[in-house]
Design a protein around this nucleic acid. Structure first.
Length: 486
RNA sequence: GGCGGCGUAGCCAAGCGGUAAGGCAGAGGUCUGCAAAACCUUUAUUCGGCGGUUCGAUCCCGCCCGCCGCCUCCA
């Protein structure tokens, strides 16, 4: 059970309001996935991570989550890319679907219940368009089918746009036969050399927005508890989805609309058209750390800013995130050394967990949740630093319980601390500078002998040498030094 | 032009009517052969500026300055 009821910011009402699913104990959640024509960048990473965190929170608090995330595998950009490469679109989409899945694995994103692809749901989309035509909410013109925006009274409510303002800025492409510039396409008539599919309105392919309406209807019914995506999907994508879904079903499409803020570089939105994106793949490949470490590093970084605020992707902030996480691992490592294991698996925690979950309840305030982790660390560390004498100031089992909770909800602290802090000893893996575990062990032994002989010059020289290779030695009283990589 | 967001210590970042969380960095100290790690102490009388409402405002209102986003594909 949650320590307190979840409250979420709803883009529709522009207010933080209690989140109450229509069926108690069950959450119907739909998040916009990606269009598979390129590798995903850090903007996609943040969005997926935000909703993954929410997904995990629902699971933690005992809700069944029916989570659907779509894949757009038919679209102008895919077609263009396939044409340029001289291959069928399936070649392009297969490649980038694999890439997307690999990225989700890198980021530690839990799988959704379903991941439908647009091309698998043509039938559902066509049925929905037929319903809209039958109700007069759509019309055929010039081989296309358009949604009649002025027939939907609530148009503009979600993005808080005034119809006339939108109309003045709207464009009509040459060849389009819209009744109104704001009308958007539901079905595009086939064009020479483009993939097309048969339909009652002629061969063609679906417009962008209709897939989400059709697929969410199929999996989750006419009313979703929650629909999420990046801020940039608010208009026109979500506005259009809402219009066509509600025009077809006559009921509320989405109870809570959530939109996450952008990832920026130099305070400018990261976007493909600006050419300032950083791919998830390249971030991982260029990371000095193993994938499991890089994963949590990135998660901590993104989760340390509230999901609705922009995050500027800077080396400084990234570095601070790594060091903060290191501190948490250090604490866990000390606990394990003290007890021979991380004590108290599964113990209930009345000390920290309620505060941690309360932060989640307050519109997913992950920065505050992270601060609870540090508060716990600061409570136990003095005792650990004193060698664990006397009664601990806080039950170590509560720390374990909290850290496990952070693992389940945020995907943090999942790496064995011995490996995070001094992994070289276990893995024998080479360091960034190419020293193998064996070489390190040999140098450490050499230094220990030098120290025994009080040849501190030699000992320090070896220590410096190791440090240049990214290996820091921490001497401990009466034992071998701790080996920590930086 | 229309709509919206942001501006909190050197940096990152919560709080959003009751008197400034947390992280990183910095300073001093304990420990150490020296370090490192850890620990202790310390670092914003103040929340872009000016007015207003209030017993009380970083939080509400108005104006101004600066930055950003959406309005076209975009997480």
């Amino acid at each position: 059970m949650a320590s307190s009821a979840l409250r979420l910011y709803n883009s529709l009402t522009r207010q933080v309001e209690p989140f109450v699913p229509q069926t108690p104990g069950e959450v119907r959640m739909y998040v916009c996935g990606v269009t598979v024509y390129d590798d995903c960048h850090l903007g996609h990473a943040r969005s997926q991570m935000v909703f993954d965190t929410l997904h995990r929170y629902f699971r933690e608090t005992g809700d069944r989550v029916r989570y659907v995330r779509n894949i757009t595998d038919i679209d102008d950009k895919i077609i263009r890319k396939a044409r340029e490469a001289g291959v069928p679109i399936g070649t392009i989409t297969a490649r980038y679907i694999d890439s997307f899945h690999r990225d989700m694995e890198r980021l530690g994103i839990l799988s959704p219940m379903a991941e439908p692809r647009a091309t698998e749901f043509l039938g559902g989309m066509i049925a929905l368009i037929e319903r809209l035509l039958a109700r007069g909410a759509a019309y055929q013109a010039g081989g296309d089918v358009y949604f009649r925006v002025r027939k939907f009274a609530g148009y503009g409510e979600l993005s808080h746009q005034i119809l006339e303002d939108l109309r003045s800025g709207a464009r009509v492409e040459p060849g389009e036969a819209k009744e109104d510039p704001l009308d958007f396409v539901l079905w595009k008539g086939a064009k020479e050399g483009e993939p097309s599919y048969p339909s009652p309105f002629g061969a063609g392919r679906p417009g962008w927005h209709i897939e989400c309406s059709a697929m969410s209807l199929h999996y989750l019914g006419p009313t979703l508890d929650l629909h999420g995506g990046g801020m940039d999907l608010l208009f026109p994508h979500h506005e259009n989805e809402r219009a066509q879904s509600e025009a077809a079903t006559g009921v509320t499409f989405v109870r809570t609309w959530m939109h996450n803020g952008f990832v920026t570089t130099r305070e400018t939105k990261m976007s493909k058209s600006l050419g300032n994106t950083r791919q998830i793949r390249s971030f991982f490949e260029e990371s000095p750390y193993p994938e499991e470490v890089t994963r949590e590093w990135l998660r901590y970084f993104f989760l340390s800013t509230h999901y609705r605020s922009p995050v500027d992707f800077t080396d400084q902030a990234l570095s601070a995130a790594k060091l903060a996480l290191d501190g948490l691992y250090q604490c866990r490592s000390l606990l394990e050394e003290q007890f021979g294991a991380f004590p108290g698996e599964g113990e209930a925690d009345r000390e920290f967990a309620p505060a941690f979950l309360e932060a989640f309840s307050a519109d997913l305030d992950t920065p505050v949740a992270l601060s609870v982790l540090h508060a716990a660390k600061s409570r136990i560390n003095p005792w650990l630093a004193g060698g664990g004498a006397g009664t601990p100031p806080v039950d170590p089992r509560a720390i374990r319980s909290l850290f496990d909770l952070a693992g389940r909800t945020m995907g943090l602290l999942q790496v064995p601390s011995s490996r995070w802090v001094g992994g070289l000893r276990e893995s024998g893996a080479p360091t960034g500078a190419g020293l193998s575990g064996e070489e390190i062990a040999r140098l450490v032994d050499l230094r220990e002998s030098a120290r025994k002989n009080r040849d501190f010059r030699e000992a320090d020289a070896i220590r410096d040498r190791l440090k240049e290779s990214g290996v820091v030695l921490e001497d401990q009283p009466g034992g071998p030094p701790r080996i920590r990589r930086i």
